[in-house]
Amino acid sequence: MASSIEEVRKSVRLYLMVFGALGVLTIVTVLASSLNVSVAVGVFVALAIASVKGTLVATYFMHLLGERSTLYWVLILAAFFFLLLILIPVMMHSETVHLIDQVT
């Protein structure tokens, strides 16, 4: 937590650097999408870049770096259940779909 005056002054420069990085990554992701790669690679690259950007925002703008473990645990819990939600489509694509494919 950047609490003392000095630390805040120092972090201002950091914010500007992060801003620069976010801008550059936005351009990179737009350029990358015009590359002729397979859908899977495209999705991976775009999400990887977005994750880096998201991490930058969370660690520096939201000061996650200076927080304590209580908050980390809460967020890990949320992240775990978030993953579970994201897995729902995978579950729905398990055997049933293949069975239907075999029938039709």
Binding site: T26, T29, S33, A46, A50
Partner: peptide, 8 residues
């Protein structure tokens, strides 16, 4: 949201 809707 941006890459998911605009780029992919």
């Amino acid at each position: 949201l941006f890459p998911v809707f605009y780029l992919l």
